[in-house]
Design a protein around this nucleic acid. Structure first.
Length: 278
DNA sequence: ATACAGGCTCGCC
DNA sequence: GGCGAGCCTGTA
């Protein structure tokens, strides 16, 4: 591998970021993280004052890890309530990534009703069996298979990756994307139009759409409501309210947490997971 | 063992 | 337009 590139960054925690449930294919070993950003292998590590890039295009790596996010400004916009502040203390340095569109979408389609360990397993299975391979420094890196590739894979082969009922959704969405549904073309769409377009894809509902908006489309306001977050909101914010439908919970979150609601969501989510199931 | 996972969709009311 | 059930499969 070539010379190490260093990037000085405040408020950056690599491990926390990669283990926060945004992304599912990085492996840790000997103090480094091995993965891929789109179709390029990347090897990175934490340093005292920032990020060390051992392999990969530094510009793309910096973009992926959102080193440009102005964390003090973002944090300043978050609500000052107790639950939020407690979560903040646990999450200093966690960033919202900028992931490639297709792999983020596909991965979250497979994530429904699954724990992180199994989402990882499915992600690796798909990469290993159907993804292109890159060799770097004697190591092989598996790229997430393209929509075009997955559109051609048989149902049986996908089922063998442990996807269960998600096979149909992944396959149908891969076909739509392969046949011209343009994920890139949606980059400039307003939030509501983007959300509606994503939700038109099989296996994509409000939660998955919001994850893709947040983790890939840079929509930092997007607030995915899953079972963990719903629990947090009910217990810490909506205690006395009755008849809370999904729509009302979402509306509260969208209004209350502001322009960086996605950061609020990730922090509350991580704090809740660390506490464990009630 | 057996309940339950960072949901989506459909059918019912 | 809200509610509940079923969906595959690995883990705890």
């Amino acid at each position: 591998m070539s010379a190490v590139e260093r990037r000085a960054v405040e408020d950056f925690d690599l491990r926390l970021t990669l283990n926060s449930g945004q992304v599912f294919h990085w492996r840790e070993g000997e103090g480094m993280f091995f993965g891929a950003i789109g179709d390029q292998p990347a090897v990175v590590s934490q340093s005292e004052g920032g990020l060390e890039i051992h392999a990969g295009d530094p510009v793309k790596v910096a973009r992926y890890f959102a080193l440009d996010h102005a964390m003090p400004d973002i944090v300043a916009t978050l609500p000052k309530d107790e639950a939020m502040q407690a979560a903040l203390r646990l999450c200093r340095g966690m960033r919202i990534l900028r992931q490639p569109l297709w792999e983020c979408l596909a991965t979250f389609i497979t994530s429904s009703m699954k724990q992180v360990a199994h989402i990882r397993q499915m992600s690796f299975a798909l990469r290993d069996r159907f993804g292109e391979k890159r060799v770097l420094g004697g190591m092989e890196f598996a790229i997430y298979p393209s929509a075009e590739r997955l559109a051609q894979v048989s149902e049986e082969e996908l089922r063998a990756c442990g996807l269960g009922y998600r096979v149909r959704n992944l396959q149908l969405t891969a076909r739509k994307v392969a046949e011209g549904f343009s994920l890139e073309g949606l980059r400039s769409a307003p939030d509501e139009a983007l959300r509606a377009a994503l939700c038109s894809l099989p296996g994509v509902g409000a939660k998955v759409a919001n994850c893709v908006m947040l983790f890939a489309y840079e929509r930092l306001r997007a607030f995915p409501v899953d079972v963990w977050i719903e629990r947090v909101l009910r217990e810490s914010y909506l205690k006395r309210r009755r008849k809370l439908t999904a729509g009302k919970i979402q509306a509260f979150a969208d209004g209350y947490f502001g322009p960086y609601g996605g950061y609020a969501q990730q922090y509350l989510f991580h704090a809740a997971r660390r506490r464990g199931r009630p």
